[in-house]
Amino acid sequence: MNILREEYDFSKGERSKFYTMPRNILPIHLNTQVLDYFAVTAEGVKPNTMVDGLRRQVTALIEGVK
């Protein structure tokens, strides 16, 4: 028994109608050189973990200068 139709009409569909971006997450786009460096430098560590660690270090340096 086939319950799928042959064709569906998405002409009146709305993209991302029910999706809202989380407020506490900002997308950061890294170029391929940075991603490649992260991949080689820290195997098994996710890039977002490394970027967050770098952000904390930079924040501490800035606060130390104040």
Rank of each mutant, 00 (worst) to 15 (best):
Thr32Trp: 00
Gly53Met: 08
Asn2Thr: 07
Asn2Tyr: 02
Arg15Trp: 01
Gly44Met: 01
Arg23Tyr: 00
Val34Met: 15
Thr49Lys: 07
Thr20Ser: 08
Pro22Cys: 04
Pro47Trp: 01
Ser16Leu: 09
Arg56Gln: 11
Thr59Pro: 03
Glu6Ile: 14
Ile28Lys: 13
Asn2Arg: 07
Glu14Lys: 08
Asp9Leu: 01
Met21Asn: 05
Val58Gly: 00
Ala60Glu: 11
Met50Trp: 04
Ile62Arg: 14
Thr20Lys: 12
Asn48Gly: 03
Thr32Arg: 08
Asp52Ser: 12
His29Ser: 09
Ala42Trp: 15
Val51Thr: 05
Glu63Thr: 13
Arg55Trp: 00
Gly53Ser: 08
Thr59His: 14
Pro47Lys: 01
Tyr37His: 10
Asp9Trp: 01
Arg55Asp: 00
Tyr19Leu: 09
Val65Ser: 04
Asn24Glu: 03
Ser16Val: 01
Arg5Pro: 08
Gly44Tyr: 01
Ala42Arg: 14
Phe10Leu: 10
Val45Lys: 13
Phe18His: 10
Lys66Trp: 00
Glu7Val: 12
Glu63Tyr: 09
Val34Gly: 04
Met1Arg: 11
Ile28Glu: 11
Arg15Lys: 05
Leu35Thr: 02
Leu35Ile: 06
Glu6Phe: 12
Arg56Phe: 05
Arg5Ile: 06
Ile28Gln: 13
Glu63Gly: 04
Pro22Tyr: 03
Thr32Gly: 05
Phe10Glu: 06
Lys66His: 07
Asn2Gly: 06
Lys66Arg: 12
Gly53Val: 00
Arg5Ser: 15
Thr41Trp: 13
Gly64Cys: 00
Thr49Pro: 00
Asp36Ile: 01
Val65Thr: 06
Glu7His: 12
Gly64Thr: 03
Asn2Asp: 12
Val51Gly: 02
Glu6Gln: 14
Leu26Val: 09
Thr59Cys: 13
Glu6Tyr: 12
Tyr8Arg: 06
Ile62Glu: 15
Leu30Ile: 06
Gln33Met: 10
Arg23Ile: 02
Thr49Asp: 07
Gly64Tyr: 03
Tyr37Ile: 10
Ser16Met: 08
Leu54Glu: 02
Ile62Ala: 14
Val65Asn: 04
Lys12Glu: 13
Arg5Cys: 07
Pro27Asn: 07
Val58Met: 14
Tyr37Cys: 11
Ile25Leu: 14
Ala39Trp: 05
Ala60His: 08
Gly64Asp: 05
Ser11His: 00
Asn48Glu: 08
Met1Asn: 15
Ser11Pro: 04
Ser16Pro: 02
Pro47Asn: 08
Glu7Trp: 03
Lys12Gly: 09
Glu6His: 10
Ile25Gln: 11
Leu30Gly: 03
Thr20Ile: 11
Glu63Gln: 14
Ile28Arg: 13
Asn31His: 08
Asp36Arg: 05
Val40Gly: 00
Lys46Ile: 02
Arg56Gly: 00
Val51His: 00
Phe38Trp: 09
Ala39Phe: 01
Met1Val: 12
Ile3Glu: 11
Gly44His: 02
Arg55Thr: 09
Ala39Leu: 02
Phe10Asp: 07
Val34His: 15
Leu54Ser: 01
Thr32Gln: 13
Lys17Tyr: 05
Asn48Gln: 12
Glu14Gln: 11
Thr41Gly: 11
Gln33Thr: 15
Val40Thr: 13
Ile28Phe: 08
Glu43Thr: 15
Met50Asn: 01
Ala60Asp: 14
Pro47His: 03
Arg15Val: 03
Val45Ala: 07
Leu54Asp: 01
Glu7Gln: 10
Asn24Ala: 02
Ser11Glu: 01
Asn2Ala: 07
His29Gln: 02
Val34Lys: 13
Arg15Thr: 01
Gln57Gly: 11
